[in-house]
Amino acid sequence: MTPFTNRNLPKRPPHILVVGSLTPPDADDWLKGKLSELSTSVFLALERAGAEFRFVEASDAQCLPEALLHSYDGLLVLGGGDADPACYGQKPIVETIYGVNLEADRFELGLIRQSATNNIPVLGICRGMQLINIAFGGTLHQEIGSGFHNGNKDNSKMVSHEVNLFEGSRLHGIYQKNTLTIRSAHHQSVSLVGKGLVVAADAEDGTVEAIESVGSAWVLGVQWHPEDPQASQEDFDRLLATFLNSRKDSADTAQSASETCI
């Protein structure tokens, strides 16, 4: 008789926790609509990939990060408003900071740090990448100006440009090429890179476009919006597939996401 082990069980689909702040303070209806559109694009991509997921609004979380993460194989942090400079030891020095929600910042930073502690893979998009950097002790440029990385001063218009993928990086391994055409709309960027992270891609003006963890832990952040409807769906699906496949290779018996705190 064949011994009964987890190897005999079909692998369950990955359970992904998606977190973001889709209604940041002072956001107008256009921005809220855009954040909703982008998040829907992420949800559809996860469904295409066969993943199960749950979205948590960071500004209205109902439990602690360590309790919430118990049932998930990965954490995906969405884009949104700016992080409060207090989170990286600074005061606001520009007037263009928008959508600040310190409660949401603290919750998402807690999730990222707890995921790193639990060796849970983390993928961050735009604001999500910036929060990864902050969680690891890094800082941000509070204003990089308009033009190359956004279509106008209020970040309401995306632009396309190339990024350089660093050979030897996890990101380069995903795409197997040195450049990638992306869609972006951001006015802040990584300054001091967090401890245990390295730059995986940059733009022609030197702006950090991607960061990733050193060693076996799977943590990756991209400054651009791979989920934008005008971006390459193939590129986004490839990124998501690698993220989803980075979970522990086992059919575990963790309680279902629906049983975790609400």
Rank of each mutant, 00 (worst) to 15 (best):
T2S: 10
F4E: 12
R7D: 14
L9D: 07
P10F: 06
R12K: 13
V18A: 05
V18W: 01
V19G: 04
L22C: 04
T23S: 14
D28G: 14
D29M: 12
D29E: 15
K32S: 07
K34D: 15
K34F: 03
L38Y: 13
L38R: 01
S39Y: 04
F43N: 04
L46P: 02
R48M: 09
E52Y: 07
F53L: 06
A58P: 05
D60P: 00
Q62N: 11
C63P: 00
A67D: 15
G74P: 01
L78W: 03
G80S: 04
G80F: 04
A83H: 01
Y88D: 09
Q90T: 12
I93A: 10
I97M: 14
E103D: 10
F107P: 00
I112L: 10
R113H: 03
S115T: 10
N118D: 15
G128Y: 06
L131R: 01
I132K: 00
I132L: 04
A135I: 12
T139V: 06
L140I: 10
H141S: 07
F148T: 13
F148L: 15
H149V: 09
H149D: 11
N152V: 09
K157I: 15
V159W: 02
S160Q: 12
N164K: 09
E167D: 10
E167C: 04
S169Y: 03
S169M: 08
L171G: 07
L171H: 05
L171E: 07
L171Y: 08
H172N: 08
I174C: 08
K177S: 11
T181G: 03
I182S: 01
H186E: 08
H187F: 05
Q188E: 13
V190Y: 03
S191C: 11
K195L: 11
G196C: 09
L197V: 12
V199H: 00
E204I: 12
E204S: 14
D205F: 11
T207W: 03
S213N: 03
A217C: 03
W218P: 01
D228M: 01
D228L: 02
P229I: 10
T242C: 13
S246D: 02
K248M: 11
K248F: 11
K248G: 08
S250N: 04
S250A: 12
A254R: 13
Q255L: 14
Q255D: 10
S256T: 09
T260S: 14
